[in-house]
Amino acid sequence: MKNTLSILFLLLLSASCNQNKPTRQEVITKYYQAFEEGDYQKIKALINDTLTLTSGDYVTPYTHESFYEFFKWDSIFKTSYAIVQLDEADHEVIVKVTSESVRYRFLKNNPLTCQFTISFDSGKISKIESGECPGTDWDIWQKERDSLVSWIQQKHPRLDGFIYDMTMVGAINYVKAIELYEAKP
């Protein structure tokens, strides 16, 4: 009888612990909600010590500190996120996200809807791989970006390089470049 009670107690304890552990889909939902709320501390709790973002040939590894810089960069564009679809496959989750921002609006692809494959390590997000962005017109994106960069180089060279500066200052300069470009006579 004593053994039966001990086993029952361990099973209940185990079930209780498993109920408190969020699913991968819940982690992803909380991740995008934290971005939406501008709460980096919540994001930090959901990502692994190292997080890798991939987009095409670009692979960028982040620590918590360097990802915070990316977070600050993104926040300057007032980006909003909405999960459109979440599907779990093997050890990954495929998520389709629609986002809107000052930058996407300028690049004439607002909102931007993209698919991401998200991988986990020990229950935390460890890799986010960009996939297709159906409906995105990359030719217009590139044309608008190149026009802005060229005009800034000629008219406001002190802002030149904003396109490659993935810091908060770079994003501030990017927004300033957009404002100057849109206000041009």
Results as ranks from 00 to 15, higher is better:
W141E: 05
I128S: 15
N3I: 03
S6C: 01
I7C: 00
L11V: 09
Y58T: 13
V95Q: 13
L86W: 00
S6M: 04
W141R: 03
F77R: 03
T52R: 10
E88F: 03
S66R: 09
F106N: 05
Q142E: 15
M168T: 10
P185W: 02
F35T: 01
S55V: 10
F71L: 08
Q33K: 12
T29G: 04
H91W: 04
Y68F: 13
L10T: 09
A171L: 02
K21S: 07
D87V: 12
K78T: 09
N48A: 15
N18W: 08
E92L: 09
T50S: 15
E92H: 14
Q41I: 08
E36C: 02
W151S: 12
N110L: 01
V93S: 12
I140M: 10
V97C: 06
K72N: 11
V95G: 08
L86T: 15
I118S: 12
Q153N: 15
F120V: 09
L107D: 11
W141L: 10
E26A: 12
R24S: 08
F9N: 03
D121Q: 14
R145W: 13
R103K: 15
Y81H: 13
F35D: 04
T50Q: 14
R24H: 10
Y68T: 03
E26Q: 14
Y81M: 07
I83S: 02
K155D: 10
L10Y: 10
G123Y: 12
Y40P: 11
F35I: 01
W73A: 00
S16Q: 03
S147T: 09
E129P: 04
E182M: 11
S130D: 09
E92P: 01
D160V: 03
Y81Q: 08
E65P: 08
K2P: 00
Q142F: 11
E144W: 05
G123V: 07
A183W: 00
P157Q: 06
L159S: 01
Y81N: 12
I128Y: 07
A89S: 13
C114F: 06
Y164L: 00
P157V: 04
T60R: 12
I118Y: 06
F9M: 05
D90N: 15
